[in-house]
Amino acid sequence: MTTAREPGTTAGTERARTKPVRTKPARTKPARGFNTPSPARTAARYLLLVLVLLLVTGPFLWQLSTSLKGATEDVYSRTPSFLPDHPTIGNYGQVADAIPVWTYALNSVIVAAVCITGNVVGCTLAGFALARLRFRGAKLVLGLFLATLVLPGEVTIVSQYVLVRGLGLADNLLGVSLPGAIAMLNVLLMRTAFAAVPAELDQAALVDGAGVWQRLWHIGLPNVRGMLSVIVIFTFIGAWDDFLWPLIVLNDPQKYTLTVGLQYLDGTFSANPRLIAAGTMIAFLPIVVVFALCQRFFFKGVEEGAVKG
């Protein structure tokens, strides 16, 4: 149910196919003419970058600008202006009068917190067991985890709702967060991460008489922190952004998460675009902050050709 990730996303599949044809001996310094473009070309590149930037961030900035425009200001744009004439943050207060937006934000935080905790603990333990311990039935279990990947979340959403209702968790935040609290894809990702830890480390610890817990805690965990942080980031984004599942599970407007609440606001108070704009910004800005803080982790892997979606 994550939006930012699809199961089975692997980049770097092409490595095997391109033949490493080497026509010249390897150099330590790259040739000049090849690597340094002319200033005109660099300028053209920046120009294009800025154009795309406008296209990508334009709608967000327009929304931000709308959310800051005062009640007397014309937001319906015969002559669109990006800068508010009388900037005000009053709309953010008024959203809270129209819908309990801060309660919604708190609900989203609760759902995300349960999902993150569950995924970190559950997927770490299972990933370690599947990668590092030999036991009968391991292959079968692994196969079943893999098999769930061909099942889009939307396919089982009806019977998941029936199940959650049967557990008495319909219209309950726990019902929203529980099914995603251990995601099958994350179990497989943690298994891959643990499998990449050198076996010698384990062997040495075994000789020293270390038990399973000590090996998990002192050898496994320190070596899978990168994958764990990626899982935390994407679990947060997935839970915070999810719409379809909470929309199905929740009834009571007091219990809505932010995404469901915003859609509700759009349906009830569509007369005032300033309020909707303020509401979307409340849902959008936290995710931008989280991503801006964590993007180091993310793009580091990309250049090494190792990112998993």
Partner: peptide, 30 residues
């Protein structure tokens, strides 16, 4: 790699429970 036979099942237990309850059963029930 471990002394007690059930250790792996204990570790993978929660994930297997989720696999069965929130993935396999809903698929069958659909």
């Amino acid at each position: 790699t471990h002394r007690r036979w059930f250790t792996p099942w204990l570790l993978a237990g929660p994930a297997i429970l989720w696999l069965a309850v929130f993935n396999l059963w809903p698929a069958v029930n659909t």
